[in-house]
Design a protein around this nucleic acid. Structure first.
Lengths: 244, 244
DNA sequence: CAAAGATAGTGTATTAGTAACACTAAGACT
DNA sequence: AGTCTTAGTGTTACTAATACACTATCTTTG
């Protein structure tokens, strides 16, 4: 970076599984690659720079793609199977862009949570290159990217159990309790009881109500809430511990 | 392996944090390296073979070291900081064993749980090379291995919360409830109430009592229990989900 | 061989948390 | 004015978690 030639480590890459929530569905950001008329979809990723941190590489990939910095990033697994490249279409693709396409590359995978709204401002050209794919409707991806995306989804679900903090990275700065509940329902995969949900949320001091309400909706307007990270942190330092 | 020359990938290594429980303390397996009269301790690890899986490399490292196969292994994080090698002693060591000692190596770290009893049968020479270090009394390690070991310990604690299964990998095949409680106390770092603990354990059908008892102890002999993995699996498929 | 020492093993009452359940409120649209 | 749509609110029954103290059984020792 910084203008000079950027040297890559030929055996290590970083891939990112970017999650977003549009108010209804959880989606994954894919990039489109045109190859002989066909479209192939893949996770955003790149080789690791020789003088580059793993975390920096993940940030670089995401900010190149979305223009966003300062987003939630979590490394979750390295994938190094010898047969990561089994599909002939992938091999053909690599032979165009890599010096040693046959060599095994170990990829360090990250998942990332972004507020989908922040992205809607991007230029149209952006919409040509990328796609938000709902997590429950997977589509075939390049390399072992389906496996990586599925693992990311599992890990995210586990994470939310222990650190519900992360869920808020998927919501806009201010949100309604209905949105929050919808997000949780997407993650746990079941419907939750509205009253019990709200009771629990309101017991958590880090979800703070604002004196602002929806407008222009054809029903009673909902109150907005926001997440207070500092209250959250002090609450969770005295973290509980469950056995079984 | 297999007699022929073993080619290494120069930029990727695998390190293992091996945990054991001696009935009282949780310990980590370290290897000793003699360097100019000084002893330097490190986690067991090695470069990754060019034709080797990540998981296979971890298994190889552990079976070379302990003779054990079929042990619990969990990949938990890749470490790729540019300054992983800051200590002059480490640099000197690498200059002896590596062709390009100055190049950054990304290490894929695993933690592993073994039944310490299985290891007591090893030849004495083994005891010369390795050391069981209690987790609460860390000692300075080579490279960034202290960081790796600490992260492993954190991840293990998290894991036990969601999958208490893993704790049983640290216990002998048959164990007393006092041993099990001691193990949990080591992991959570607090004392637990004996009666409540036993009530909870006995509610879990996968901890099955045997008609066998301690002998030769200077007190009432304790009953032995064992872990039934198949009961465990069927129980946990209908896994619960906690919000907050 | 009696007493002391050591750890195993057991039950109950209180409190806290979780789960199930149905109606009224407010705004938009016609 | 009436209908549609989602927001918002409490109580009760049930289940799980906590706090707490004594008896049982074996070994060792005087």
């Amino acid at each position: 970076m910084a203008g000079q030639k950027f040297a890559y480590n030929p055996h290590i890459s970083v891939d990112c599984v970017v999650f977003g929530f549009d108010g209804e569905l959880i989606k994954v950001l894919l990039i489109k690659r045109k190859q002989e008329g066909r479209e192939v979809y893949a996770l955003p990723g790149d080789l690791l720079g020789v003088k580059e941190d793993l975390d920096s590489a993940a940030s670089r990939i995401l900010s190149d793609l979305t223009g966003l910095t300062d987003i939630y990033l979590q490394q979750f697994k390295a994938f190094g199977e010898l047969d990561r490249l089994s599909n002939p279409v992938d091999i053909e693709w690599l032979s165009k862009i890599r010096e040693h396409p046959e060599e095994r590359v170990v990829t360090i995978a990250y998942y990332s949570l972004i507020k989908i709204e922040n992205l809607s401002l991007k230029p149209d050209s952006f919409a040509e290159q990328v796609l938000w794919q709902p997590i429950e409707q997977p589509r075939p991806l390049a390399f072992d990217h389906n496996r990586i995306a599925n693992t990311a989804w599992q890990k995210l679900k586990e994470k939310v159990q222990n650190e519900p903090l992360v869920a808020f990275s998927l919501l806009p700065k201010r949100f309604t309790l209905t949105q929050l509940q919808g997000l949780y329902e997407s993650i746990v995969g079941t419907k939750l009881d509205k009253r019990n949900f709200r009771k629990r949320v309101q017991a958590k001091k880090f979800v703070v109500p604002l004196q602002e309400y929806e407008s222009g909706v054809a029903h009673k307007p909902a109150q907005y809430y926001q997440f207070d990270e500092s209250i959250y942190r002090t609450e969770f330092e005295k973290g509980p511990w469950f056995l079984f």
